[in-house]
């Protein structure tokens, strides 16, 4: 079970709340102060992308964030329920295995994800440039973006916020 799980309706106003929660937990987990801006921006980008996708495809469904502080890293997983555009275009069926695309933080990497829109592609580009460990799982039932940053293992939820 994640340290903190958060679900929110697909409203732009809630993205800021998600950013603030993620940043607070990252700080408590021991992520370096110099990385907190990156966490805030990357989580915001992932949540903004999810909100836009939900507003297009499933505005009534909530977006889910899991924040974990296990094994010396602070990990954030943002999951949406909107079918990925590129998979829709390929007429994929529900029982196809989930495809994983790994992004290595190389800002020169071309967008191998056909974006929902210009901004969606921008958002993924920003996340890729910010987090040193990013995995994007587009699927017929939604996209999952997992990203992580190094955290001080000693903190591990014990230090004050």
């Amino acid at each position: 079970m994640a340290t903190v799980e958060l679900t929110f309706s697909a409203l732009p106003a809630h993205v800021r709340t998600a950013r603030l929660v993620a940043t607070a937990i990252a700080r408590r987990t021991g992520v370096q102060e110099s990385l907190l801006d990156e966490v805030r921006l990357a989580v915001g980008e992932a949540c903004s992308r999810a909100v836009e996708a939900h507003r297009l495809h499933c505005p009534g469904e909530p977006i889910r964030i899991e924040l974990n502080d296990d094994s010396g890293r602070f990990e954030v997983i943002v999951s949406d329920s909107a079918p990925s555009e590129e998979l829709l275009d390929e007429d994929s069926s529900d029982d196809e295995p989930e495809q994983m695309i790994r992004l290595d933080g190389d800002t020169d990497t071309p967008f191998n994800l056909a974006p929902d829109s210009f901004m969606s592609g921008f958002g993924i580009a920003v996340i890729t440039g910010l987090a040193d460990d990013v995995e994007v799982y587009p699927g017929p039932k939604g996209m999952r973006i997992r990203m992580s940053w190094p955290a001080a293992a000693a903190a591990n939820g014990l230090s004050p916020a």
């Binding site: 950013r19 805030r40 921006l41 915001g44 980008e45 903004s48 210009f118 901004m119 921008f122 958002g123 580009a125 920003v126």
Partner: peptide, 9 residues
């Protein structure tokens, strides 16, 4: 204080 890709757009 904060700018994301939506702002860039």
């Amino acid at each position: 204080d904060f700018l994301d890709s939506t702002g860039l757009g």
